[in-house]
Amino acid sequence: MALINVAAREIHCKIVYYGPGMCGKTTNLRYIHSQVPKEVKGDLLSIATETERTLFFDFLPLDLGKVRGFQTRFHLYTVPGQVLYERTRVAVLNGADGVVFVADSNKSKMQENVNSLKELAQNITRQNKRFAEFPIVMQYNKRDLPKEVLAPVQTMDHFLGVTRMHWPRVEAVATVGTGVFETLRAISRAVISKL
């Protein structure tokens, strides 16, 4: 649910990066933080364990400046991917306007992707939102994996129901930034269209 402050002429939107553990959600945010102009970004805030696994969330505020007189801000969050933190994900997802689902392209991670997506659907529905209409962009990350372990895009589409749900889908290598901004553009557009 976006917040529109007419008096202060501000619009705030919340975008959450969701997906199984180690799929690259924090890497997406780090890359965005490293690339956007200084005047656009705030500090990247990470609540992580000593081993740099996300414990609660990462948070990156982006200030898009004035659009038709409205100061527009996007707040990007990641959830902790590990199965253990299911309830934490529910907490971070609270009030989200759109979700980027980061799927791991490793063949062996397909079941984890599917489980995480199912959980996302449940959590969105619990917020009294219709999952089928909720703005979601699918990112297939780690497309640079060796061929032996790389899941074909069609296989992932099939397992994750991407074609059926008509979600925009982006192939990415978040460590080097490939597809990161394409994903951000896609989710931003999807969120704006629902405002």
Binding site: L3, H12, G42, L45, F57, V92
Partner: peptide
């Protein structure tokens, strides 16, 4: 707002980190 966005802040807290503060407090509450 429950999503962590600051609607209004009043007092002598002319703090730059208010956006992060909002996100964290909403996170704690959620």
């Amino acid at each position: 707002d429950k999503s962590g966005q600051v609607i209004s802040s009043q007092g002598d807290g002319d703090r730059q980190d208010i956006t992060a503060l909002g996100a964290l407090i909403a996170g704690v509450f959620a």
